[in-house]
Design a protein around this nucleic acid. Structure first.
Length: 419
RNA sequence: GUGGGCGUAGCUCAGUUGGUUAGAGCGUCUGGUUGUGGCCCAGAAGGUCGUGGGUUCAAUCCCCAUCGCUCACCCCA
């Protein structure tokens, strides 16, 4: 038997409505904030991701689905969305058409990691990007959008974490401070942290090793060493979030794993999804557009994991959907009436009713059982005496009440069913 | 890449201290008189007991390997 690739999942009909529900909320809220949808290809030139996400990140180093096409070009299935959006932004000069572009997306992403709860190899993200402004209002706006979407989905167990990484210059200065601080104790760090000491020292903060955290206890913190502009922007982000009632925690150890972030970074976590607790993450990336060959353009964005969010919704039982139902089930009393039933169904469907009938020539009892299973609001009996007299029998499945109506009066059927 | 747990019907799971035809609930299908559902009742279909090898008179059960799923580390959404 051929099975789905490890780390991929089929979305079966029984689950599709939960996805639709989420997608509709996502679209609605982005539209309320006047964000426009953008779709980019699932694959891009490999170098795009290497240049934006960072050569030394885990994503680029070991998680990308990279392959050669027949023209010997190295292509990669997108592991995240921002790189593609920025590429499209530059390629189509979106910045030249209007100074600020507010964009959103819902799309599949691919990373070759070991699957576990809340982590798949093909997964889906929705997210937003505001490209073209330095205003911290947009940092706060995106956090609000993310938060509002999760709230609207009924999630309660949420923590918003924010931090600022500063501009590259202040970050470099800070890194030196941290390096100095840890220098004497470098040998006491865990192996992993020692590696990070050399490659990306900020990520030492991510260590879960107790002894590492002990060593870091009195370490200098980035937010105490921000440049004036970053400091000021961070204050404003906090102020705006307070004004729009988005509760948050400051997490000075929040470091995102993608290299392009500057200034504000944020994350929303839930304890209801196993060990992969981040439902979404994002931040500012003021240098990325220029870095990818565009004009210097500041930007901020976030990406949210749909599977993780739906997992949290399930575990919190945050929303329930009505059982699927149809308007009308047609019941054929005699096999010979199959074509007539089919025609009638077609006409009713064109009148915008959801209608179904039995294609398997099953017994009346079986048809009724089917109507019941489908949650049909009405059943329509076609055949026998009534049919000969030019009538059909419409039954309200809830009340059991039945009405004889003229065979050719589609209008009457519609009127009854829509009432 | 490293480590733990698990693989018996479509689904959730029993079971055999190795011994004839492997079970339940749910689901599916048919029926409980001529043309009517939900409840109830009766019956049926559906399993190479993940795969390969070994031990044994005999393996779904024991041993080995392998594949798959799953959780965690790591990383991230």
């Amino acid at each position: 038997m051929i099975k789905a690739i490890k780390g991929t999942k089929d979305l079966l009909p029984s689950n599709a409505s939960r996805w639709h529900y989420l997608e509709n909320i996502v679209k609605k809220i982005f539209v309320n904030f006047n964000y426009k949808e953008i779709r980019t290809p699932v694959f891009e030139e490999t170098s795009l991701f290497a240049r934006s996400i960072g050569e030394d990140t885990d994503i680029v180093e070991k998680e990308m689905y990279t392959f050669k096409d027949k023209g010997d070009n190295s292509l990669t299935l997108k592991p995240e969305m921002t790189a593609g959006v920025v590429r499209a932004f530059i390629e189509h000069s979106l910045g030249g058409q209007q100074p600020l572009n507010k964009l959103y997306y819902i799309a599949p992403m691919f990373r070759q990691e070991r699957p576990q709860a809340g982590r798949l190899r093909e997964f889906h993200q929705f997210g937003g990007e505001a490209i073209g402004s330095l205003s911290p209002l947009l940092d706060a706006e995106l956090i609000q959008i993310a938060y509002d979407i999760l709230k609207e989905l009924g999630l309660k167990d949420l923590t918003v974490k924010i931090n600022s990484l500063g501009v590259p210059e202040s970050r470099e200065n800070y890194k030196n401070l941290l390096r100095e601080y840890l220098h004497d104790n470098k040998e006491k760090l865990s192996e992993e942290s020692r590696k990070r000491f050399d490659t990306n020292i900020l990520r030492v903060f991510d260590s879960k090793v107790e002894s590492d955290q002990q060593l870091l206890k009195d370490a200098p913190l980035m937010i105490d060493h921000l440049d004036d502009e970053s400091q000021n922007d961070f204050e404003m982000v906090k102020e705006y979030l307070n004004k729009i009632d988005v509760p948050f925690d400051i997490d000075s150890k929040l470091v995102r794993g993608l290299d392009y972030y500057t200034k504000t970074t944020f994350e929303i976590i839930s304890s209801k999804v196993g060990s992969q607790s981040a439902l979404l993450g994002g931040g500012r990336y003021d240098l990325l557009v220029e870095q990818l060959g565009g004009k210097p353009t500041p930007a901020v964005g976030f990406a949210a994991g749909i599977e993780r969010i739906l997992l949290a919704c399930e575990n919190e039982n945050s929303f329930t959907l009505p059982e699927p139902a149809i308007d009308l089930y047609l019941i054929r009393l005699e096999k010979e009436l199959e074509t007539f039933v089919n025609e009638l169904a077609s006409k009713l469907r064109r009148e915008n009713l959801s209608v179904d009938f039995d294609y398997l020539l099953r017994s009346v009892k079986a048809q009724m059982r089917e109507a019941n299973k489908l949650n049909a609001r009405f059943a329509l009996f076609i055949g026998g005496e009534e049919y000969e007299q030019g009538n059909i029998n419409l039954k309200n499945m809830e009340t059991g009440e039945q009405k004889i109506i003229p065979l050719n009066s589609i209008e009457e059927i519609i009127k009854q069913v829509k009432a």
